[in-house]
Amino acid sequence: MRAVCIMVMGPSGVGKTTTAKAIANALNWTFAEGDEFHPASNIAKMSAGIPLDDQDRQPWLETIRDWMTQKSKEGVNTVITCSALKRRYRDILQGTEADLRFLQLDAPVQLVGERMSRRSDHYMPLSLLNSQFDALEPLQSDENGIVISVEENPEQVVSAALQALAPNI
């Protein structure tokens, strides 16, 4: 049986890290921050306010996919964050040998902007927020995943996510 990987996805600022860490803690699974898989060149671009293009993202997505596969081969269930904004990105990620389930976090752009304006410890500038929402292609019915609103507090979001994921994990 393949190990399960829950990928918490969505635009920057929706609460991927907070949600993913809480889910990993609740399930006692391994957590990984997808942003840590970015090469230095991608971080430099984003820090300079330059959106990444598909060519920039390709090796990053492949590295995440390969990490999920390795953890699955080790029998380790995981929770990882990754924006995974476009279907073609998710198609690359679905090449993993893990049993991948997407958890898309959904919120109005205004709410996310307010949240991002209050944080100072992230390289993604507020100026790139609209490009993230413009690029977002929501999960489709043939993708293995669920969509959860993050308009509530983090505890309620995690509870709703765990409840929705429970039948399949």
Rank of each mutant, 00 (worst) to 15 (best):
T69H: 06
K71L: 11
S72W: 03
S72C: 09
S72G: 06
E74L: 14
E74K: 14
E74A: 15
G75D: 07
V76E: 12
V76I: 15
V76N: 04
N77V: 10
N77F: 09
N77W: 02
T78K: 02
T78G: 07
T78N: 07
V79N: 01
I80M: 15
T81V: 09
T81H: 00
C82S: 08
C82M: 03
S83Q: 06
A84M: 06
A84C: 09
A84P: 11
L85Q: 03
L85M: 04
L85D: 00
K86F: 06
K86A: 05
R87A: 13
R88Q: 14
Y89H: 15
R90C: 00
R90M: 01
D91W: 10
I92E: 04
L93T: 03
L93S: 00
L93F: 03
L93A: 01
Q94C: 14
Q94P: 08
G95V: 03
G95E: 04
G95L: 00
G95W: 04
T96L: 03
T96P: 10
E97S: 15
E97W: 08
E97D: 15
E97N: 12
D99N: 14
D99P: 09
D99H: 11
L100P: 09
L100Y: 03
R101K: 14
F102R: 04
F102G: 07
L103Y: 05
Q104P: 09
L105W: 05
L105D: 01
L105S: 05
D106V: 14
D106I: 14
D106C: 13
A107L: 09
A107D: 08
A107G: 07
P108T: 12
P108S: 13
P108W: 05
V109Q: 15
V109F: 09
V109K: 14
Q110W: 10
L111T: 13
L111D: 11
L111Q: 13
L111E: 13
L111N: 08
V112L: 00
G113Y: 02
G113N: 08
E114T: 11
R115A: 05
M116H: 05
M116Q: 07
S117V: 02
S117W: 02
S117L: 05
S117F: 02
R118S: 13
R118Y: 08
R118V: 10
R119D: 09
R119F: 11
R119E: 11
S120Q: 14
S120V: 12
